[in-house]
Computed example of a mutant assay.
Amino acid sequence: MKTLFLVRHAKSSWELPVGDKERPLKTRGLKDAHLVANKFLERENFPVKIFTSPAKRAIETCKIFVNISEKDDLDVSIIDDLYDFNGTNVIKFLQNLDKSLDSVMIFGHNHAFTSISNIFGDRYIENLPTSGLVKINFDTNDWSHIEHGQTELIIFPKDLR
């Protein structure tokens, strides 16, 4: 069994004159990411392996989750292919994960994450909102064979406010 946790980065700010990769989180984004991370921790254990897009907003969201976990053994990697908006690179990345990893969490972007949730999960999601989290289980022992999985958990920040 393989388990994938998809987390869309928290709400980012457009106020600063910076490039897309450098946009920081808004105050609402910080609050929403904390809400979702805390709710996640009530139900689940963090996977030891975590991957994030190199975008500042994704890294900051990832750091919130890691800090809330209070675990010292989490392994976080920044992956350029996760800075993807249509999902092609993210899917290739997932299909090339090491078989020894049973559970991973990735932080990234829309429309990629909404598409991936709908391609692989069994519950339709119209739009994965910022700070939204989806857990999908796959009945396989090899990431290269992931196809249709079971959507086990969906957490949206609006449901926690």
Rank of each mutant, 00 (worst) to 15 (best):
F156S: 04
L74Q: 05
L35Y: 07
R8L: 08
I155K: 01
A37I: 07
T88M: 10
F93Q: 03
D32C: 11
L4M: 05
G108P: 02
I68H: 11
N45L: 09
E126L: 13
N127Y: 15
K21W: 01
E60P: 06
K11T: 09
F138K: 03
K158C: 10
I79R: 05
G29N: 03
R28G: 10
A10H: 00
N86K: 14
P24A: 07
F93V: 02
K92M: 11
R23K: 11
K26Q: 13
L97D: 00
D159C: 10
N96Y: 01
K92A: 14
T3M: 04
M1W: 02
K2P: 02
E44H: 05
S69W: 10
K11P: 04
K56S: 07
M105Q: 05
L160R: 00
F93H: 01
I64K: 00
T52E: 06
D159N: 13
N110Y: 03
I106V: 15
S12V: 08
E147C: 08
I154L: 04
L16T: 06
K92R: 14
I78W: 00
D98H: 11
P17N: 14
V76M: 05
Y83W: 00
L41Y: 10
A58Y: 00
D142C: 02
T88F: 15
L6A: 04
I116D: 15
D75I: 14
D102Q: 14
L82M: 09
L160Y: 00
S100G: 00
R28V: 11
L101W: 07
N86I: 14
D102V: 09
F46L: 11
K99E: 15
L128F: 04
N110D: 15
N89W: 09
E152S: 07
R123G: 08
S69L: 08
I146F: 01
S53N: 06
Q150T: 12
K39D: 12
D122R: 01
D32I: 10
P17I: 03
H109D: 13
N127H: 14
D159R: 03
Y83F: 03
P157M: 11
L41T: 05
D73C: 01
W14N: 05
L153V: 05
D80M: 12
L41W: 08
T140I: 09
I79Y: 01
S117H: 04
G121M: 10
R23Q: 07
D80T: 12
H9V: 06
F113K: 01
P157C: 13
I154G: 03
D32S: 11
R43N: 13
E15A: 11
L74F: 04
R123C: 13
